[in-house]
Computed example of a mutant assay.
Amino acid sequence: MSVYHAGSRAVQDRVGVRAAADHVGRSVGRGIRPVAAAFLELQPLLVLGATDPATGGVWASPLTGTPGFVRATGPHRMSVTGGVLPGDPLAEVLATDATDGRDGPDGSEGTRVGTIALDPRTRRRMRLNGRLHRTPRGFAVEADQVFSNCPKYLQRRSSYETVDRTPGEVQRGTELTARQQDFVAAADTFFLATVHAHGADASHRGGSPGFVRVLSPRELLWRDYPGNSMFLTLGNLAADPRAGLLFLDWTSGAALQLTGQARTEFGADGERRVRFTVTRVAATDGAVPLRWAPPEYSPANPWVP
């Protein structure tokens, strides 16, 4: 499939970076190179982005395991042992998709998903987008797009430890509580899932605490910092405004998942801002059994007033 669809091209043209996007786009392929395979096997965390077939909402969900739970099992195939927690908004995606195989038994190509593996220790990240199928031990993704991003806006956390946690029950709502608003306002990182007609994507957003503004219990705003000029995320939003956000507490393991709609605002000053409207909330204490070291903020982070 082409690296860019019409939504990404429209944003690239508006910003005037099509040539730069074409250059960067050459790094996107379907193959999982040996260095990428080695990177995956070291990760204790993977973020999955997809559409909940029951409601049509787009969500981003955390998956964790002992390093090696994510691995390349072929030149175009990533396998994952385990899955999301019970009650996770994407649990149905993993429960109902076609059983193992490059295509489902009905000839389907599988559920379109986006994934991102992010390593705060090295400030490296890798994205793999493709088609999900269940396997006896979890699921596999047949890759359509595989690529890495630069460490810009990624906070370094030098180490982590695995802790024994019992996840709490999923707390659901249609807007952010006061506690959740404070959590978002203090965040330095979140993950963003988006979709388009032929795929899905999961990406990272980072900045100094306060870079995500809470305008109300149902509305967030953040500045879109200059990146790699591909505009995969904003391109998806131009084609389909549905989006899912995942905020993690890197100490307590709490997960805050939001689904809703997002739109990009292009300012006269050349800055871009994304406005997100919350429609549903899923919050889980102790969702991730990892405790990370305090952050060393990226030197690329813009100042937050």
Rank of each mutant, 00 (worst) to 15 (best):
H76G: 09
A50T: 06
D201F: 02
G260A: 07
E109T: 14
Q261A: 11
A197S: 07
F139I: 08
A37Y: 12
A10E: 11
L220A: 03
P294F: 09
P167G: 03
G260P: 11
T233M: 12
A200H: 01
S298H: 10
L290T: 04
P299V: 04
F139R: 07
G114S: 07
R9V: 05
M126L: 15
R131I: 04
A238E: 15
P75N: 10
V28E: 05
G199W: 01
V35P: 00
G168E: 08
C150K: 00
A21N: 09
T64R: 05
P67R: 05
R242N: 06
R131P: 03
A187I: 00
G173M: 13
S229F: 07
R205V: 13
A19D: 15
R33V: 14
V15D: 03
W303R: 15
V47F: 02
R102L: 06
L237S: 04
V113G: 10
G199H: 01
F39D: 11
A143I: 13
A36M: 14
W292D: 09
Y297M: 14
M78F: 01
S208D: 11
E296T: 14
V170Q: 03
A38Y: 01
D240M: 03
D52H: 00
P226K: 12
D22W: 05
F39H: 13
Y160H: 14
S208C: 09
P289S: 08
D97V: 09
G65M: 07
L246C: 12
A95P: 09
T64Y: 05
S79P: 00
V163Y: 12
G25E: 04
P241L: 11
E92Y: 00
H23F: 12
D285A: 15
A287Y: 11
L45T: 02
G260R: 09
W59L: 04
D52L: 04
R273I: 02
T177V: 10
T174W: 08
A185D: 04
C150Q: 00
E296Y: 01
P67K: 12
A255M: 00
A187L: 06
G270K: 03
T122W: 06
R131G: 00
P89I: 05
R30D: 07
Q257H: 06
D269A: 04
A282W: 01
T96L: 03
G107R: 04
H23T: 14
S27Y: 08
L46T: 00
M1D: 11
R18V: 15
A283W: 13
T177P: 05
A50C: 01
F139K: 06
R71G: 09
A262C: 12
W59V: 06
D52C: 03
F266G: 03
A202V: 08
G83K: 11
F39M: 11
A187D: 08
L63P: 01
E161V: 15
S148N: 02
R157D: 08
G114T: 05
A268H: 10
V15W: 01
H198S: 12
V84K: 04
L246N: 09
H133R: 13
V70L: 02
S252E: 13
G110Y: 09
G173Y: 10
V80E: 08
T64A: 13
V24S: 08
L220R: 02
T99L: 14
N228I: 02
G74Y: 07
L192A: 00
V170C: 06
D164M: 10
P305M: 03
P86A: 02
V146W: 00
D201C: 00
E41A: 15
V288K: 06
V17N: 00
R18P: 02
D164K: 12
G286T: 14
G101E: 02
D144M: 07
T259G: 11
N228Q: 02
